[in-house]
Design a protein around this nucleic acid. Structure first.
Lengths: 191, 191
DNA sequence: CCAGTGTTTAACAATTTTGTCAAACGCCAA
DNA sequence: TTGGCGTTTGACAAAATTGTTAAACACTGG
């Protein structure tokens, strides 16, 4: 019942994919980084693809539950948004390549179980609509409101490496830039 | 001087990477899709990596020039933004995985030539600042304004496959959703 | 027509990556 | 201590991917 190694391998893989951004790492690279024999990947996960599948599914699931949790919090609307931004930014800065990995993998694989439409999400969309009635945020399809929020949060971090070059920014400058995002987003969203 | 085949191969590669989203396509897959012998990839490009490098560089360059062109247009601010949104949306819908490809490749390679900071970009940032003075858009660091715009444009398309699953949306529904983005973004940006 | 030049192909070789298996190891319980 | 069981390892095999070469081909200019 020694799950430590299995977990170590999986965590190492996630670190390589999500943090270092080495999106086509080989099993050898993962094993080396974890300090174990490559055979163990097959022993515990069967094959490279199955390891990827597991990592992928857990990443999607963690994203989903993270979103769920944030949306279900018993807080006033604005605070809820603020907390969500903080949580999301922290996560996306820790694992800047997580969403990129999901995108590169989603095209190939088709193993995501189709779950029922999220109840918390529906409730939160209503909450957004109510807030529009109150006039604290702009009127639009609540779905667009949510997507705007996600976009402004994720995109600058995901595309950091690209825009740093496109705009010729230094790393420290870009770091500072990301730090400012929370306030910018709040100002952009609330009237 | 028969450049047709070389071009065919390169275009096919771009189609596979940027449109189909097969971000780790093999040389064989590319050759098959182009209907040519795999050896030609080596004949024209030397190696797989050099082909990737060329595709990558051209993608970055096209993005840069597309941006440049839009920013340099002699148009009133709002129309300039509108046109930019249209051009960008058309591009990003035609090649939804282009930016994802750039992100997955940028980490490995280091072959991008470092160009001087874009003059048009600087001019446009001033233009944005002037517009804030006029009060037609919200006050913030012009860089953030630009990033907000990029984010709201790109992210929903890039992450389409993911959020379609996360939110359990049908394809046609998501298509319609993207269609609405232009108006939503304009409403979100202009006061 | 013919030589020459650039293009394309098939067969082969090399490399890289993944998968398998039997044996060795370590640890706990009988 | 020893037998058993899950874990780990190294050596090997298989598969997949990329790179190379010589020859066939096609076309053009002389």
């Amino acid at each position: 019942m020694e799950k430590a190694t299995e977990e170590l391998i999986k965590q190492t893989a996630k670190d390589i994919f999500f943090r270092q951004g080495n999106l086509h790492a080989t099993t050898q690279e993962i094993a080396d980084a974890a300090g174990v024999n490559r055979t163990l990947l097959n022993y515990y996960f069967g094959s490279r693809d199955l390891l990827f599948e597991q990592v992928y599914n857990e990443a999607v699931e963690s994203k989903r539950s993270q979103l769920d949790e944030a949306l279900a919090a018993k807080l006033p609307f604005r605070e809820k948004i603020e907390r969500f931004i903080e949580v999301y930014l922290r996560e996306v800065r820790q694992y800047p390549f997580k969403e990129s990995f999901l995108i590169t993998e989603i095209s190939n694989k088709d193993f995501m179980q189709h779950k029922k439409k999220n109840a918390n999400l529906i409730a939160f969309l209503d909450e957004i609509a109510a807030e529009m009635e109150k006039g604290t945020i702009m009127r639009m399809d609540p779905m667009h409101f949510l997507v705007n929020l996600f976009s402004m949060l994720s995109y600058p971090v995901i595309m950091g490496p690209l825009y740093r070059r496109l705009f010729d920014l230094s790393n420290t400058k870009y770091e500072r830039f990301i730090d400012e995002r929370k306030d910018v987003i709040l100002k952009s969203i609330f009237i």
